[in-house]
Design a protein around this nucleic acid. Sequence first.
DNA 1: ACTATCCCCTGACGGC
DNA 2: TGCCGTCAGGGGATAG
Length: 272
Amino acid sequence: MPELPEVETIARGLRQRLPGLVISSVRCRFTGVIVADAGCFRRSLRGAAVEGVARHGKYLFLRLSGGLDVAVHLRMTGQVLLLPRRMLPDRHTHLEVFFRGSGDKLVFRDVRKFGRCELLTGGIGRFVREKRLGPDALTVKSGHLWSRLQGTRRGLKAALLDQGVLAGLGNIYTDEVLFRCRLSPLRPAAALTRRQTERLTETIHELLREAIRRKGTSISDYVDPQGARGGFQHVLMVYGREGSPCPRCGAAIVKSRVAGRGTWSCPHCQQG
DNA sequence: ACTATCCCCTGACGGC
DNA sequence: TGCCGTCAGGGGATAG
């Protein structure tokens, strides 16, 4: 499931290849992935130049000429790929973008069809405000987290998964961050001290930077635009590891259900 | 305003 | 071998 590090890895991969290319045509094989009108989407993209690639939380943005942007969300199983333009699309390929004079095409594929592409005319900032996304998790300030966590009655995991609190953490990195901070996922968010919130913020930054360095976590479907898997799944400490010894104290990692999600934690280390 | 639950969708997996 | 139920979880909609 692509979270911030996976989307950042994709953004970096696209940044090396896309800027300067001009879109010659767009083929949509499953219109359900396009938010609003697919015909308008195709017409608007045709002839536009790619000026840059951006990211906020789990959203990827293609910045186009004419003040247009395309917002992409991969949800659970979405992929953004750069493939040879002549390669035949498979049954999960929903969108293909072709470029003038390029041997590659940009492909959106998604087994479960949860992912979405949306044309923006009002800019990224406006989109982020309308979606009520919190600050990006890579740069969120401790003071912001403090005020948001103080103002909720929810448990810590539920609060950190809320993209309105901070944008970018999903189920995997939330479990890993709570383990590193020795905090229980069920602990009331408002019970954190200021010092704990500072440490939590630093740990979020470190964990995400580390995961980006390893090019993300490939557990199920995630690959980068060139089809390469990430490496962070090899260093996960709790996620998906029920029954394995805790890397810190040796106690068996337990799986539970928190905020409707599978949740892995060490019952001994994470009592706080 | 806040919180919990359901739903979207497909493939993998376990039980029989 | 095949059928069926369950699970995976991001986020939007909806109910309480």
